[in-house]
Nucleic acid binder design. Structure first.
Length: 227
DNA sequence: GGTTGATCATCC
DNA sequence: GGATGATCAACC
């Protein structure tokens, strides 16, 4: 890598993949330097820093609120921290779970399915023993759920949504679900959002997000890299 | 507060 | 050691 300027949004999927391939093998310190970004000492107070740096290099619109990072070309970007064996070190956040006005939503039209329809996975070395500047970008690849993966996601999503709609939100833990988890997603545990209680009454509860379990993303990575 | 980007750190 | 519940920051 030499000179760098922030790219425009990619015009097509091939261009996006080429950009990601071009920075694979680079260290985060190298990329940050070229972009004139300051590298934080660690991710304790900058948990999204790596994702934002990749967004910058790939031309994602900063602070995008669209359904996907690259809505025009139908792609969601996910960086995923991996260990030396290529195993995921963290679960993967997908989207918030709708806790109200959710009775008409079906799997086929769900936000989660839309987001996961096509993902550009970018593995990044994520072990804490590796200084942030020295962590390297891995090989990027496109993924779309195969039939089995789609069915597994659908089953968990429908089961979790059913519980939410039935007022069981405060009885759902991250143990529910085979490939998906429902877990808190908020600035802190004092944040509240509207939901439905056990007798159908309005309640306030912690916002929840859907996360992909590590076993699920590990299989995706294995399917690609062992192919 | 809601949504984007996620990882931290305590508890099992 | 790993997963669950908690948390951090920017933008709106």
């Amino acid at each position: 890598m030499s000179m760098h300027t922030r790219p425009q949004p990619p015009e097509n999927q091939e261009q996006l993949l080429l950009r990601a391939q071009r920075i694979s093998g680079s260290s985060l310190g190298e990329l940050a330097c070229l972009a004139k970004w300051t590298v934080p000492p660690d991710l304790k107070k900058d948990k999204g820093w790596v994702g934002l740096l990749l967004e910058y290099y790939l031309g994602a619109r900063a602070g995008s609120k669209a359904e996907q990072d690259f809505a025009d070309i139908g792609v969601e970007l996910k960086t995923i921290p991996v260990d030396v064996k290529g195993q995921p070190l963290e679960t993967t956040f997908v989207c918030y779970a709708p806790l109200t006005r959710n009775t008409g939503i079906i799997w086929e039209n769900s936000h989660l399915r839309k987001k996961l329809a096509k993902v550009l996975w970018v593995p990044i070395e994520g072990e804490r023993q590796i200084p942030l500047t020295q962590r390297r970008v891995g090989t990027p690849f496109f993924w779309s759920p195969n039939l089995d993966e789609d069915k597994a996601l659908q089953q968990d999503w429908e089961e979790l949504m059913e519980r939410i709609i039935m007022g069981q939100i405060n009885h759902i833990s991250a143990h529910h679900g085979e490939v998906l988890q429902l877990r808190p997603k908020a600035k802190n545990s004092r944040i509240l959002t509207a939901a439905t209680g056990e007798t159908g009454q309005p309640i306030m509860t912690l916002p929840r997000g859907f996360y992909l379990k590590k076993t699920f993303t590990a299989a995706i990575l294995a399917r690609y890299f062992l192919l």
